[in-house]
Design a protein around this nucleic acid. Structure first.
Lengths: 95, 95
DNA sequence: TTTATATTTAAATATTTGTTTAACTATTTA
DNA sequence: TAAATAGTTAAACAAATATTTAAATATAAA
């Protein structure tokens, strides 16, 4: 659980996630997009992978990364009680 | 924006938020609940306050903390595109 | 006005984190 | 097979973070 929040704490990782909503990309394209060294991007992708926010598959010499629903479901599950708290306040009187 | 993600990264702060869904509490009660020193809780509350996830008001010698909708709205705004991505995939064929 | 209570602020420290350079593995192309 | 390309892993280090103890501020009670 903790790992998901750690993953989305970093601004670069959040940008990577946003970038991947446009479709699957390999690590090189991502590194290029963010003007950052490959090892750094690789490290960020590893954390996102641990958090199950991204997944990857090997296509030849490329690693293609995609968004992974699991991690986002974890965030949603955590967030749910608060949406209830704010959007559905308990009625003041019992019907 | 960053501050909200930093705030919810820490497990103690997430527990504090959850605790506050049960209603407003003063800092002492929170510190007691989490078996942690007051300065530490005070620091966590300060971060949550900066992230606009909590708010407080002074009641005599007590500071009463409550959840603050603003911070949660920031999280929701960030999360929105991903819920769209996963729940509303683009149709494979054009109608 | 003195004492007690509630909480924050400050200073110090150990741990975690993001980044870089250098070295390594795997795949493709010549 | 040799050279090039894509990406990761390892080592090193500066910056950020959570926690603690001690000191400070503010309100309430005696």
């Amino acid at each position: 659980m903790d790992i998901v929040f750690k993953a989305i704490n970093d601004p670069t990782r959040r940008e990577i996630l946003r970038f991947l909503t446009h479709g699957p990309q390999n690590a090189g394209m991502i590194a290029q997009q963010f003007n950052m060294t490959k090892p750094s991007i690789s490290h960020h992708l590893d954390l996102l992978k641990q958090a199950q926010l991204v997944d990857f598959s090997k296509k030849g010499q490329f690693l293609v990364y995609t968004l992974n629903k699991s991690g986002f479901e974890s965030i949603h599950a955590w967030f749910q009680p608060f949406t209830l708290f704010f959007e559905l306040p308990k009625p003041k009187i019992r019907l």
